[in-house]
Design a protein around this nucleic acid. Structure first.
Lengths: 203, 203, 203, 203
DNA sequence: CATGAATGAGAATTCATTCAT
DNA sequence: AATGAATGAATTCTCATTCAT
């Protein structure tokens, strides 16, 4: 069982991460300062450093925490025994819902899923995608592979297909979040599902 | 005819913009400093300010210059009288080629096409896409509309469709640029073209 | 009662303002850098920005603080029920003493009482005197008006008269501060008092 | 006789100095840049350096040239055999006229007559008045001395008296230049003359 | 001589991080 | 553990000065 200290600690971490997402959502990654995050969280700047080594780690862990939540929700869908079409529709539905409920996280997600420089960084590493993002893509690629085996969909390079579908739908989610009056969620779910399944060609 | 001064000026601007793209490609938007851009361009810091008001304008103009080049190339394709399928294939081909030839620009493109905070910014404007990006999407949406009218493709919301296709293919381009040994370009062109046209469903 | 934090804060502000005056006294307004002020105050550059928005505010507030001190001392004299001659003599005495005690402030006073450009300024406003200076002149003009009403002095345009007297005596104070061995303060007090009262004409 | 080259040279110098005064009048000493002065003068930045070692020398020489003009005009008055009262009145009249005709110079005069820091300067010299200004004061002090000898005015310390009168009247000239509708020049000439001669005391 | 593009030292300001309380 | 004042490295931008044309 968790000791009282652990509970308090987890609560602090949670509070800080929530604040981090809100501030990044408001100001963007680059303009989000430790000062503002601290204020938003209602703690002192120094307190953040008790739980996170530095700014990079704070952002990183915040991203991971939220990504894990999203991942868990999607995994739950993908691990069912639904048909591919149903899994696809449901996964899209879950993503739309998750980003609606976690609007703040979306900006962070946009910044981190793909390579982007952070302030202060000097590293010259070959930029690739964030590991968690890559894992997500891979899991989806697995599902695609299964569907191919079962003859539900055509044989296609799975990783590329996964990327295409995920980024295509991310674009539409962003569009929705920027729209004054977006259409019903279900309409976009259906739009994407059909698009992915049947393409654009008239038959 | 251009005077000698104009030629020199254009050359300088070009050199600086090239350097800007290289540095952003290496360090990312946020970590790209004026100092490093100047070094990369082989000029003094102050020189950059002779041609660009400030960092924001440098980045903005650099983005616009490259986007205009890409846009021109794609427009040339879209304005032909090819069938939709051929236009789509050719447009994808052009994008792949452009980003292969302008690897450096791609990172800048990733940073700017979509809302992301720039340093120093305090603005609280509703974040939406970069105007040039939006224009690109809209032009593609027009082409889709025409194809619908001509019965080549199904009736679908065009702007969303355009976004989905563009971002989906951008993801694959990024993947290619990060791959040690990407498949032949033509393979990915065909992959995407068929995917968009026919979807994933087996028939 | 003041909390400990307030005391510390006020002390810091005081220290920084003192340093500001010393540096300006040494280098002049334009050449006084934040770096040097910080060193003089024995704090880091950044610390100054905890207490003052920017260089302009630092200089402005420093000026105002000292001007207010001087103003208070002079007001105390002007609000007594002394005769005009006594008020004048006493006010001059106070000014001489104040600038002796606050030598450093005097350079700042010379720079700011009257219009002069500050670095970075682009403003094209009609330059006039500093509000605090103007207030000082006006208060003295009021006293002159009273003395006229009471028939102690001749009827003259008061604001101009106030300006003349203040700037005339400022010049002598500057002279004193630059002299190796200035005459006793009381001598200059008497010199100015008699000059203002009786002019130069022999009778 | 002057060679053609000398004439051209003198003309250039004159043009540049005029421009310098106008720019300083507009922007103030600190904000007056070489670039703007060059533009105002209609020459290239580099050209200025053909005639003046650096910014300091440009400003210095410009000040001196104008001060010499003012000095010459005043000397012409002081060297007449007028009575002291007439000399005083006439000298004030000349100063008022000169600064009306050379409004631009006035700002430079305010900046330089008295010690003030110039940008880039590191010197730690004891700040005193500008030599030309000091000379002016001294000449006026001589005239005062003569008037004392001749019994026209009371015996007073001359240098201090000169300073007081000059700075007092400078303040009024500044006031005039800032006024929307200043009184007739002659009124202020008379105001100052009588003030200096008779003081403020009612008799 | 005249030019003005190029230079780079230097200034203001920001903000992640530390550490005494 | 929590705080937040203090720090100073890092960054952007300016402008006097130089020098190749």
């Amino acid at each position: 069982m968790k000791s009282k200290e652990e509970v308090v600690q987890e609560f602090r971490i949670h509070t800080i991460q929530e604040a981090t997402m809100r501030v990044i959502a408001r100001k963007g990654m680059a303009a989000a300062t430790m000062q503002e995050i601290a204020e938003e969280a209602g703690v002192a700047k120094g307190t953040i450093y008790l739980y996170f080594r530095d700014r990079d780690e704070l952002v990183e862990k915040t991203f991971e925490t939220a990504m894990t939540q999203l991942g868990d929700r999607i995994d739950k869908v993908l691990e069912t025994s639904l048909s591919f079409e149903e899994k696809l529709r449901e996964a899209i539905r879950v993503r739309l819902a998750f980003f609606r409920e976690n609007r703040e996280f979306f900006r962070l997600y946009l910044s981190l899923r793909m390579p982007e420089g952070t302030p202060q960084q000097q590293r010259r590493q070959k930029r690739t995608c964030h590991p968690q993002y890559r894992t997500r893509v891979q899991k989806f690629a697995e599902v695609l592979k299964d569907a191919m085996k079962r003859g539900e969909i055509r044989e296609l390079e799975q990783y590329r297909l996964a990327l295409f579908v995920i980024e295509g739908s991310t674009a539409i989610i962003l569009e929705r979040l920027n729209e004054e009056a977006p259409p019903p969620e279900e309409a976009d779910v259906e739009f994407m599902t059909q698009l992915i399944l049947d393409g654009v060609r008239k038959r």
